[in-house]
């Protein structure tokens, strides 16, 4: 699905990613954990194509394409989805209109006709139920006046509507109460299949109680320094990140 090789990236003059490598195959769920400032959100932004970051070395291959050569929207068309840590409000633009524009533009790139209003609305009903999102929110302006939990559920709703190949969830658990966390996790689990993959970026282990990862990676100072199974997450939760730092120091 995606192969990241020795990726270096900087913002302004500060190098954040310092040789990150990672491979994610179809059907897998990977968790990337790490202390604040390790570069977790930078990784998400670089993969999605945010212009503030400059890639200085390394390569990323996504579904057989050179990801770094693609524009942000081309990455989306190729099937990359980012669930934002801070979803953006777009006043006056309904969620429905926003998603229909996104879906139809993606379809257009694949030489498909625009989705019919009937099929689209059926899909909205089905997918909004998946994350227990009130149908009324679907017709409200994108994220405007949504609670923190509603915004995160809306991200997963959009993910369900766009059916991406690779989803990157950037700190999706931050700011969620336990019920919202359960709903979001259940949505992600239902969307999981053998043809797609998920990268979960998180600071805490608790989301991983609900979405069980195949691999857990520890990101520290711009590199992946340790990889393990789901038990690594539990170990991190118990011991904190300091022991990793010590391990590296040795």
């Amino acid at each position: 699905m995606i192969t990241i090789n020795d990726l270096h990236a900087k913002i302004e003059d500060k190098e954040i990613l310092k040789g990150l490598s990672l491979e994610v195959k179809a059907g897998e769920v990977h968790a990337i954990m790490g202390p604040n400032g390790a570069g977790k959100s930078t990784l998400a932004s670089v993969l999605a194509g945010r212009e503030d970051y400059e890639v200085t070395a390394g390569s990323v291959s996504f579904v057989g394409e050179d990801l770094l050569e693609l524009s942000t929207e081309e990455r989306a068309w190729a099937g990359l989805f980012l669930a934002f840590q801070y979803p953006v409000e777009i006043p006056g633009v309904s969620n429905i209109n926003f998603l229909r524009t996104a879906i139809n533009e993606t379809r257009e790139k694949k030489d498909l006709d625009p989705i019919s209003a009937k099929d689209f609305m059926a899909m909205v009903r089905e997918k909004s139920a998946l994350v227990e999102l009130d149908a009324k929110l679907a017709s409200r302006s994108v994220n405007e006046g949504f609670s923190g939990g509603e915004k995160k559920r809306n991200e997963i709703f959009q993910m369900a509507m766009l059916a991406p190949k690779l989803s990157i969830l950037d700190e999706t658990d931050s700011g969620l109460d336990i019920d919202a966390l359960r709903i979001v996790a259940s949505g992600v689990n239902k969307l999981k299949n053998e043809n797609n993959a998920t990268i979960i970026i998180t600071h805490y282990q608790r989301l991983l109680d609900y979405i069980v990862p195949d691999f857990v990676h520890v990101l520290f100072d711009g590199k992946i320094v340790k990889t393990g199974g789901k038990e690594l997450a539990i170990e991190l939760e118990e011991k904190g990140y300091d022991w990793i730092k010590e391990e590296i120091a040795q």
Binding site: A48, G49, R50, E51, S71, T72, E73, R75, A76, W77, F81, L82, F84, P87, V88, E89, I90, F98, L99, T101, A102, I103, E105, T106, K109, Q158, L162
Partner: peptide, 11 residues
């Protein structure tokens, strides 16, 4: 806002 739209595949 523009980046959010781009990421969803809206040019």
């Amino acid at each position: 806002q523009i980046f959010y739209c781009l990421q969803r595949g809206i040019s």
